[in-house]
Amino acid sequence: MSEPLLSVRNLTIDYIGEETDFRAVDDVSFDIAPGEVFGLAGESGCGKSTIAFAISRLHKPPALIRKGSRILLAGRDVLDLDPKALADFRWREVAMVFQSAMNSLNPVLRIEDQFYDVLRIHKGMTRAQARERAAEMLRLVDIPPDRMRNYPHQFSGGMRQRIVIAICMALDPKLVVMDEPTTALDVVVQREILQRINELRKEFGFSVLFITHDLGLMVQFCDRIGIMLAGKLVEQNDAAAIYKTPQHDYTKKLWASFPSLHGGLLS
């Protein structure tokens, strides 16, 4: 593997409680190569979202990243950034798409203004430049650019999610963190969106950290997968190996918990 883009080393995160602390992430290490899609799978509460938040330093107290943890993005430790460097780092280097991202658009602003907001602050673009860039990005996610004068409520959930992805990519980030980006959408829309992201990452070369509980979907999309259980990364391998030859008992159990479309019929 070439030099990794993201390198997470011995990441340990506690939620500080009044009496006892809860260890949400326990000594997790993994790498993501440039252009790679890395998946983190596990059930709710296993710490996968906590990792996603930590990577863009969006974690808030009572979450505490323990000493010795390192998150290196292109050689820089994210945990050492000062506020100014951090503001510059978010969106430009790491962009995030959340589970209910379609609800993260500002309901009272037109789509073009939401692009302008990001592009003005990070790139100092004028309105005309921002509009041009927005049109380009919307085309990439199959939304007619003439709709940028519309407000978020005039789009369906799937379209809104695609708009959020377009805004995320407007600054050419190196890494896109996607935390259950399509869980609230139906399967056809989910497939359309992820297929598009897959094509875009081939074209632009960004890496993706993809978080979901749906192992089948993960194998379709990811190059490599890590399986999390109670804060620990219990298995990490190529997508095909996680599917065909899972090693850890928990990975096998996770597979067994999915009803298969073509599997056994009702007895």
Binding site: V187, Q190, E192, Q195, N198, Q220, L261
Partner: peptide
Amino acid sequence: LLLSAVPDPDVRFDDPRTRL
């Protein structure tokens, strides 16, 4: 369409034959 979009670990997004 609905059936073809159900997540199936045997179908990779990279595969042009199964692209929607």
